[in-house]
């Protein structure tokens, strides 16, 4: 029965190894974050207090410090940053959807041969550095940047628009960076759509636009939700875009975490922020996961 044996070995390898790695380096770290979020900052290396100590023989002293979460609740800046992050993510997602859906639709209905090229062109920027692509917009949006120079030259505006270091620039950066994440699942969904459904709708007397609203749109809902979650969730915690393009005044939670950690060296507070962020993202994440499993269920 050596094949049973080798099957067990392959199970152990295939399931066990990824589980071990992700458990150790993805799951366990969250426990650490939770632990440190309950500690106090000190001027030490590492800069936080221990949660428990053996004060004397056999007596374990546990100190849980909820002050970090207290602070997050009391100081308006954190709530404002959280709300602003959610808002930016929402606007960014909607903009991605408004631009990405027609693009995905146009690509999915293009002739087969051209489709691959069009899709490659969507994926291509993804392969170049994200950082560099965000950076490219600095030169474009500057007060004396290309966009302003161009608009002034056209005579559309009299004085340079201030776009860089505003919320507007953050939206642009988000849409620019995350558009492929919206288009790809939508495209995958739309190409799976049976074209005879639309022919049937037309045959039953439905005009093309109505057919789109009544047939295509409802059936592409899984693609819309998947794409939206792929944009929304990471954008809530985005750091690079608000840091390089956004205004220093309006904060996002990812950037705040970075500042607390690197500038203020307040690891416990940064951890508490991470816990809050995680708690906020659990809902959309579960939604996405549920949807993915449903999708798989219907496919098999």
């Amino acid at each position: 029965m050596s094949h049973r044996h080798s099957h067990r070995l392959s199970r152990l390898l295939n399931i066990g190894l990824p589980y071990f790695w992700l458990g150790l380096f993805f799951l366990l770290p969250f426990v650490m974050v939770l632990r440190i979020s309950l500690a106090e900052p000190t001027l030490a290396q590492p800069p936080y207090t221990a949660l428990w100590e053996w004060v004397e023989q056999g007596v374990l002293q546990i100190r849980l410090n909820l002050a970090n979460f207290q602070l997050l609740r009391e100081d308006d800046i954190y709530l404002a940053a959280l709300l602003n992050s959610l808002w930016v993510a929402l606007v960014g997602t909607v903009c991605c959807l408004l631009l990405g859906y027609p693009m995905a639709y146009a690509i999915a209905t293009a002739p087969e041969r051209r489709r691959i090229l069009l899709l490659m062109l969507i994926i291509l920027p993804f392969w170049t550095s994200f950082l560099i692509r965000v950076y490219a917009w600095i030169g474009l949006l500057n007060a004396n940047g290309l966009l302003n120079t161009f608009l002034l030259w056209l005579g559309v505006i009299d004085e340079p628009l201030k776009i860089l270091h505003t919320q507007m620039a953050v939206y642009i950066g988000v849409v620019y960076s995350y558009l492929p994440f919206m288009i790809l699942p939508l495209y995958a969904n739309l190409t799976r759509l049976d074209p005879t459904l639309l022919e049937a709708a037309a045959d039953l007397g439905c005009r093309p636009f109505r057919a789109f609203l009544r047939v295509t749109l409802p059936l592409s809902m899984p693609g819309i939700v998947a794409g939206s979650m792929l944009v929304f969730i990471p954008v809530v915690g985005e750091f690079v875009i608000p840091d390089l393009l956004g205004s220093p005044g309006s904060l996002m939670i990812g950037k705040l975490m970075w500042t607390e950690f690197f500038a203020n060296k307040d690891w416990p507070l940064a951890s508490a922020l991470a816990i809050v962020l995680l708690a906020v993202l659990v809902v959309p994440f579960v939604l996405m996961q549920r949807l993915q499993q449903d999708d798989e269920g219907t496919r098999t």
């Binding site: 993805f26 979650m229 809530v236 915690g237 750091f239 690891w267 951890s271 991470a274």
Partner: peptide
């Protein structure tokens, strides 16, 4: 699935603490 969407700041901070 989680690492695909998890904000970088969280992954970075949590791994450092680990």
């Amino acid at each position: 699935t989680a690492p695909l969407v998890m904000p970088d700041v969280i992954i970075g901070l949590s791994l450092l603490l680990l």
